[in-house]
């Protein structure tokens, strides 16, 4: 994601149309964050579609965009890339359940093209895990459970989307993100 922010210009901060539609928050200020990032020259023409870009756009520098992504990733948002006719990348989305229609379509209705999994898969290091459960609270995909008897968290790697939110939440650094391609059973699992 950070690399996307480096390559893409211009970057504009906009509010999430789904969040506005589903949970009714027109995002402004810290409480209702203007969370998503629109990419590309199309952003200069946002005024043509005032309904879509309600509350306006705010152009960011590469550094600001990286900071923005980091800030929300740490707080538990799933960072996704939005394509508008792949491979054209149109934006960087910050998603959570149930606001994000892409996440909902994928995990509730199993409509795959809405959201593909990431290049990484999270795995718990059982020696490091103290079973505090902070990762389990964060997972937006229902992939983490607490194993009661051993007091450790358990990540279902086949369900994991590799967003890394749990790794950020883990105070023990017990969650590692592995390369999906190096796990034969998961290589084709998107």
């Amino acid at each position: 994601m950070q690399k996307t922010a480096e390559i893409a210009q211009p970057i504009a901060r906009i509010d999430c149309i789904y969040r506005r539609t589903i949970r009714a928050t027109l995002e402004d200020g810290e409480q209702r964050p203007r969370s998503c990032l629109g990419l590309g020259v199309g952003m200069f023409r946002w005024e043509e579609w005032p309904e879509r870009y309600k509350s306006g756009v705010e152009f960011l520098s590469t550094g600001e965009a990286k900071k923005h992504i980091d800030h929300w990733h740490k707080r538990g948002m799933v960072i996704t890339i939005m394509s508008f006719g792949t491979p054209y990348i149109r934006g960087i989305c910050l998603c959570d359940y149930p606001d994000c229609v892409a996440i909902r379509m994928r995990i509730d209705y199993d409509v795959k093209p809405y959201l593909f999994k990431g290049h990484e898969v999270a795995k718990v290091d059982y020696d490091e895990c103290i079973g505090c459960g902070s990762c389990a609270q964060r997972c937006q995909f229902g992939a983490i459970k607490m194993e009661v008897t051993v007091k450790k968290s358990n990540i279902d790697m086949t369900r994991c989307f590799g967003c890394g939110v749990c790794a950020y939440a883990c105070l023990q650094n017990a969650i590692n993100l592995l390369d999906r391609e190096k796990l034969p059973a998961l290589t084709e699992e998107w």
Binding site: T21, I22, R23, E47, E48, W49, E51, K54, D99
Partner: peptide, 16 residues
Amino acid sequence: QAVFAVAPTKIERFKE
């Protein structure tokens, strides 16, 4: 369950 959505019934160019 976040069942509802409030959506515009029409979207026009240059117009909110």
